[in-house]
């Protein structure tokens, strides 16, 4: 389509409210509806009384009020019911440390090591459960409730949980080299699964599977399970990449949680 803009003269006469032939008036008006450039041209030639009026209106519409508070900004990353799951994390790490005392002394595995990979997953499940977030129903109906909010909350969980695990692991003598990659891998798989069955269920499924398949046998048999041995690191790296890729390619699925 070729662009025919109205002449400066007809725009000026339109702005001034002068008599324009009906066909020109109609053409100018129809063109203004679709052409931002010409709306700007119109705005520039508007008579002073009109510009004064519009300036006053826009000035009235200028944002007022106080800027956003600090607590409010924190809520963008974690559910404001952050404290309960921080408490839960501390509890889980403490429980893991006490589990160390129960394990056979000769075993090299530690409770912190066994539990570390699923602690963030529990945090993710908690962040998306109706019971722990009073405004859950409201949050899931907003545009922000999608992959972006899922990732923000996961980051918040990791930021809160990883230092606790590092400290607990250091006390128990479990090197992060053993558990960090499995931890991130399990989290990535949980997020990928969450796009299919919902975040809360995915977190619970992952935690349950880990408990049955890894923690149970390790407690019975003793020793560091194979999946947590340093040799498994490449596998966990692959799991992490695979999980992240699945999340990326199915990002639209997170709109309904």
């Amino acid at each position: 389509m070729t662009e025919h803009h109205p002449s400066a003269d007809s725009i000026a006469r339109y702005a001034g409210g002068d008599d324009l032939p009906a066909d020109v008036l109609w053409a100018v008006e129809a063109h203004l509806e679709t052409c931002e450039t010409c709306r700007l041209r119109l705005a520039d030639v508007a008579p002073p009384q009109v510009t004064a009026l519009t300036a006053a209106v826009w000035a009235e519409l200028e944002p007022t009020g106080t800027p956003v508070g600090r607590r409010h900004r924190l809520a963008r990353w974690a559910t404001p019911s952050l404290l309960p799951w921080l408490a839960m994390t501390a509890f889980v790490v403490l429980a893991a440390l006490s589990l160390d005392g129960l394990l056979p002394a000769h075993s090299a595995s530690s409770g912190v090591l066994l539990i570390a990979p699923i602690v963030p997953v529990l945090g993710v499940a908690a962040a998306w459960s109706r019971g722990m977030d009073p405004a859950y129903e409201l949050v899931v109906s907003t545009p922000r409730a999608g992959l972006q909010l899922v990732l923000r909350r996961t980051v918040a969980v990791l930021v809160a949980v990883l230092p606790a695990l590092l400290a607990g692991g250091w006390l128990a003598g479990a090197s992060p080299a053993y558990w960090l990659l499995p931890c991130l891998g399990v989290t990535a798989v949980t997020l990928a699964l969450g796009g299919v069955i919902g975040m809360r269920r995915a977190g619970l499924v992952a935690a349950f599977a880990w408990a049955v398949l890894v923690v149970g046998p390790a407690v019975v048999v003793g020793g560091v399970p194979g999946v947590l041995a340093p040799g498994a690191a490449p596998v966990w790296a692959a799991v992490l990449v695979g999980g992240a890729a699945a999340v990326y390619f199915r990002s639209a699925a997170y709109a309904r949680l």
């Binding site: 519409l61 200028e62 944002p63 007022t64 956003v68 907003t142 545009p143 922000r144």
Partner: peptide
């Protein structure tokens, strides 16, 4: 308002 992705400058008003 943040959850509803409103433009930042419009939020306080």
């Amino acid at each position: 308002a943040w959850l509803k992705e409103m433009p930042k400058r419009d939020v306080p008003g």
